[in-house]
């Protein structure tokens, strides 16, 4: 069942991909999606390049969304393959993001991947420091936003080209 649903959801996602996102879908491995995401313009994760206005700016982040065998009863797992300085993304090789509907106890089968994608995008624009996985980054964000912005942008330049 999960295969069928994932396929269906992929179809929906293709039809209605959130802006600035691209899904790389491998037919042979449908439980692992690779998502390419541009840092939203309003966020600190947009690359401050001075290119032509028509060209999308923004850091380029690679994400992986993997579906557990129990999907849709268990939530998909989101991990940032590109390092990102963000209170809600773990600063390790997993780069896991796990909050809101991504938490097992809050996930509900009717939820869809596209909602997950939107959640990710929203969180890039507005991190949620109150539910941080990285307390130190959250602290920066809350108490010392300038510093946070600076580091975040540096990381974008360094990792998210």
């Amino acid at each position: 069942m999960s295969t069928k649903r994932i396929m269906k959801e992929y179809g929906e996602c293709v039809a209605d991909t959130p802006e600035g996102m691209k899904i790389n879908f491998d037919e042979n491995k449908i439980t692992k999606w690779e998502v390419l995401l541009d840092g939203p313009d309003q966020s600190v994760y947009a690359l401050p390049e001075v290119l032509s206005v028509s060209v999308r700016q923004g850091g380029h982040f690679k994400l992986e969304i993997s579906f557990p065998p129990e999907y849709p009863f268990k939530p998909p797992v989101v991990s940032f393959k590109t390092k990102i300085y963000h209170p809600n993304v773990s600063n390790d090789d997993k780069g896991s993001m796990c909050l809101g509907l991504l938490r097992a106890e809050e996930w509900k089968p009717p939820n869809k991947v596209v909602a997950v994608l939107r959640l990710i995008q929203t969180l890039l624009i507005e991190p949620n420091p109150d539910d941080a996985i990285e307390p130190s980054i959250a602290n920066d964000y809350k108490e010392n936003y300038k510093e946070f912005e600076k580091t975040a942008k540096e990381w974008v330049k360094r990792y998210a080209k």
């Binding site: 929906e12 809600n88 796990c98 909050l99 809101g100 938490r103 596209v114 959640l119």
Partner: peptide
């Protein structure tokens, strides 16, 4: 989507370490 994809974010992290 009539299936109702609710977004319930900000609910707190995390992949508990």
């Amino acid at each position: 989507s009539p299936a109702g994809s609710q977004i319930q974010d900000g609910a707190g992290c995390s992949e508990p370490t």
